[in-house]
């Protein structure tokens, strides 16, 4: 069965590299702005400056998992492997981003709340997401048949994503202490620009990484689907 996994779009690497490079550049600019030029926050002091990466990471981590959810639905409906490779890529990038999110949160929480970890709804939901999607990535590595792997991981991704709001609300009822969500409206104007630049920077970086990772998945799949060489 010679299924075309690669298409002209996924075989081109220059665009994702350029997008990721632009994202990295914006991230450097935004972080420098946030660290050097933005005013000090009155109550939290310099610790607050981690917000310039923390909040954009949170937005983009959720975006990555939402994209993975979309890929899972598309993969189940459309069949084939194009959406499966994107699902694999976005789940991995999502897990990396949310792990970073937990680490940044812990670094911020220690001087602010006095503890590394707190059982707040968003923190706990992020940790549950990391574990749930790591489980699906592990499932992928255990299933050898590519067709089964595509369907199973899409099913598992849908089930895990639907759980997110339920986990959030259950933990919220159970315990709550986190800050109100930061959006440009809740933050003073002076903090806007570095926050926005970093958000777009991480978005572009994530986009480039997902495209490149999906290409690797497609190349691996193509090799796996190749018929065994004829006996001489």
């Amino acid at each position: 069965m010679a299924t075309a996994v690669m298409d002209t779009k996924t075989s081109d690497t220059s665009t994702p590299y350029m997008v990721a490079g632009a994202g990295l550049l914006l991230l450097v600019v935004g972080s420098y702005w946030g660290l050097a030029y933005a005013p000090r926050e009155t109550y939290m002091g310099d610790v607050q400056r981690i917000m310039y990466v923390h909040v954009p990471t949170a937005w983009n981590a959720m975006l990555a998992f939402t994209f993975a959810f979309g890929c899972a639905i598309a993969s189940l409906i459309r069949g084939g492997y194009r959406w499966d490779t994107r699902l694999e890529a976005s789940m991995e990038v999502g897990v990396v981003l949310s792990t970073l999110l937990c680490i940044q949160g812990a670094i911020w929480a220690k001087p602010t709340w006095g503890v590394w970890w707190d059982w707040d709804p968003r923190l706990t939901t992020t940790a549950v997401l990391v574990l749930a999607f790591s489980g699906i990535i592990a499932l992928r590595s255990f299933v050898d048949d590519p067709g089964r792997r595509a369907v199973w991981s899409a099913v598992a991704a849908i089930i895990a994503y639907v759980d997110v709001p339920i986990v959030y609300f259950s933990v919220k009822w159970w315990n709550s202490l986190h800050q109100m969500q930061s959006t440009p409206e809740t933050v003073s104007k002076a903090f806007h620009w570095p926050l926005r630049i970093n958000a777009i920077g991480i978005l572009l970086l994530m986009w480039g990484l997902i495209a490149l990772r999906a290409r690797i998945a497609a190349l691996r799949l193509e090799r796996q689907l190749q018929p065994p060489p004829e006996a001489a």
Binding site: V128, L131, A132, G135, A138, F142, A156, A160, I166, V171
Partner: peptide
């Protein structure tokens, strides 16, 4: 694999 997939999912049930 079964607990790896199931346990994070049933956090709300446990709570």
């Amino acid at each position: 694999l079964l607990p790896l997939l199931l346990f994070p999912l049933v956090v709300p049930v446990l709570l």
